[in-house]
Amino acid sequence: MAESRHLGDIILKIDHISLSFGGIKALVDISFQVRRGEFLAIIGPNGAGKSSMLNVINGVYHPQTGTVTYKGETRHHMPPHRAAELGIGRTFQNIALFKGMTVLDNIKTGRSLKIKPNFLMNAIWFGPARREELEHRRKVEEIIDFLRLEDIRRTPVGMLPYGLQKRVELGRALAAEPDLLLLDEPMAGMNIEEKQAMCRFALDVNDEFGTTVVLIEHDMGVVMDISDRVVVLDYGRKIADGTPDEVRQNPEVIKAYLGVGH
């Protein structure tokens, strides 16, 4: 799969990242790279440090050592909103939607960065305020169509079933038209149909929009089918990095991860 796809230059480079919380070493000297347009999976057992890795990439956690290079710029401390401005989108392992808002408003909010008029114009619904709200509404509706959320756009997200909430969260991340999309276990807790649909959406985003995707997933089967490359973490260390076939045959992976009944 990897060979047949056109991959661009390196969009994200992780160098010797180490992160600990008190005595707990969440990440130990992690390095890897992601190319533009790539679909990368991060796998590993519970507590391996997968979510922490994403949090380092978009600035929620600050590693003690190491650097993150994104689009050629190396940063030590990048606040999350800066990461968003630079085109890094993200979903969370535990759904982090805006519960009191409708599907439509959640996805619109994902686009906040792109909506320029200030509050004074908004206050009087003047020129650019109205124009941009309508323009962005159009874009948001495209995402709603893409994710098949048409029927529930006016529903407060708190009232939706779990699987749909995850989908709305993807929509919210897509609304910002990210270059790099970080998905933290988007299929966890879903039934088989929901998983397949979510896989399809993630792949389509990667294919159609050319968005680089970094996805965390527990389910080995799913990962092997959809990703170009797999990074395996275990106890905060990287133990493998390669194509799904290479990783599948890696003895350390079999021992550390596949061996324990996953």
């Binding site: 606040p79 909103h81 982090a96 805006f98 909010t109 906040s112 509050f119 908004n122 919210r172």
Partner: peptide, 21 residues
């Protein structure tokens, strides 16, 4: 408009709001 949505976003989930930018 955006002003109000941003307010509701920080009300409902401030970490996610920040990650959105």
């Amino acid at each position: 408009t955006r002003t109000g949505r941003d307010w509701m976003a920080i009300r409902d989930m401030d970490v996610a709001a920040e990650v959105i930018g």
